[in-house]
Amino acid sequence: MENEISKLTLVLIFCVSAIIGYFIISGVPSLLHTPLMSGMNALSGITILGALAAFAGTVRSGGRILACTAVLAATVNIVGGFGVTGRMLRMFKNTRGNMSRAGKKAEITNSTE
């Protein structure tokens, strides 16, 4: 057990990442709220790691079936979520289509602030 990450550390990680998340997300312009949300939604499919752990750890066949279903559901969530997010973000274009990066920056300061 000494090599194990302690539960208290995990609780701390949860709290700290919630605070970090709060600060990162607060600054996101409302223009991007839908892709942000669907991206977050895709990320929450990372619960697939829990499903893999459950699959590896369980000694019952019922448990394995449940864990596999969880892997399936979480994969749909991840792949579907990142897929739609990417699709949405590709639609965000500005007037001149593919501009140089510097040109884009000038446009952005206008539109998001």
Partner: peptide, 30 residues
């Protein structure tokens, strides 16, 4: 997000815990 994060604590998984926390917070902000 919160549900995934707590499951991460149960599974002892850092990434799952951290992502759960961030997603939970972002949902609350929105």
């Amino acid at each position: 997000g919160v549900s995934g994060g707590i499951a991460g604590i149960a599974a002892g998984n850092i990434l799952l815990t951290a992502v759960g926390g961030i997603v939970g917070a972002s949902g609350l902000i929105l």
